[in-house]
């Protein structure tokens, strides 16, 4: 007999029921995006908005399909930079958060510098990075890392500290080392915060990569947007923006899915 069956049989299974949402609220989410696009399409046609101001979604999607090879190539460049920058930013943030857990004064020493970095408008840094590191992927990766570092650091610092005090006391009573406490208690406790960080950092990673590409690049969606804007080619500018938004949403969705799979005990 399975544990669940035994629990049910003994009356110990705790069933948590959610408050029933209104029917329309439950079925609405899959339709909100198509509805918004439809409203956009109709508005542009009814008000006869010129295509060089706001192109209709149908035109944007048609361009995306017709030039899919070019856009796919640009998207892959931006995706690669975003993933590399995200990994670098989150990796440094994790290292620092773990180090601050072992040695708390480090947090007080480092946070002013981190806040200073956060306070500088990173859009202003992008041209400097391009000047220093050229038109290759390096300035894009660094820009992305700078943008994603802060939310990841804050999330992990909170996550690694947000442990059940009773469990922490128990581990200390067992004479657990700091490393064992990190491995068995702090790290699993921080998993939900990791996904919170990812959900914030993934859209920022794409923004970082595109902003850096905008200031000088030989490829990527930022470069495509810059070219389109220079030529006042709104449909192509929107096409690149559409693709960027789709990648951001997919990344966010993957992080949310990962959260449900890995940090399932929170749900």
């Amino acid at each position: 007999m399975s544990s669940r069956a035994l629990l049910q049989a003994s009356g110990h299974l705790i069933v948590r029921t959610a408050r029933p949402a209104r029917r329309w609220l439950r079925i609405a989410p899959p339709f909100t995006l198509p509805a918004a696009l439809l409203a956009w399409e109709l508005t542009v046609h009814i008000l006869r908005v010129p295509v060089y101001l706001v192109p209709p979604p149908s035109r944007i999607l048609a361009i995306l399909w017709a030039e899919r090879g070019l856009y796919l190539q640009a998207a892959m460049v931006t995706l690669g930079e975003a993933i590399a920058g995200l990994s670098l930013g989150m990796g440094i943030a994790l290292g620092l958060a773990v180090a601050a857990t072992f040695y708390p004064p480090l947090e007080r020493a480092v946070m002013p510098l981190v806040l200073l970095l956060k306070a500088i408008p990173l859009v202003a840094i992008a041209p400097i990075l391009t000047l220093w590191f050229g038109f290759g992927p390096m300035p894009k990766v660094l820009m992305t890392a700078l943008l994603t570092f802060y939310p990841a650091l804050v999330s992990w610092m909170i996550g690694l500290q947000a442990v059940d005090p009773a469990a922490l006391e128990l581990m200390r009573a067992w004479n657990a080392s700091d490393w064992e406490i990190l491995r068995h208690l702090r790290w699993p406790s921080a998993w939900p915060y990791t996904f919170t960080a990812l959900k914030t950092a993934i859209p920022l990673a794409f923004i970082g990569a595109v902003v850096a590409e905008w200031t000088g690049a030989s490829g990527g969606l930022g470069r495509a947007m810059w070219l389109a804007q220079t030529n006042l080619d709104m449909p192509r500018l929107f096409a690149a923006a559409f693709l960027l938004a789709a990648m951001s949403l997919t990344g966010y969705g993957l992080a949310a899915w990962g959260e449900r799979r890995v940090a399932w005990w929170r749900s």
Partner: peptide, 18 residues
């Protein structure tokens, strides 16, 4: 504590949910 002679039980179960 180092010899693991001590068994500690607090007011809550302090179980790890994962």
């Amino acid at each position: 504590r180092a010899a693991r002679w001590i068994g500690w039980m607090g007011q809550g179960p302090a179980l790890l949910p994962w």
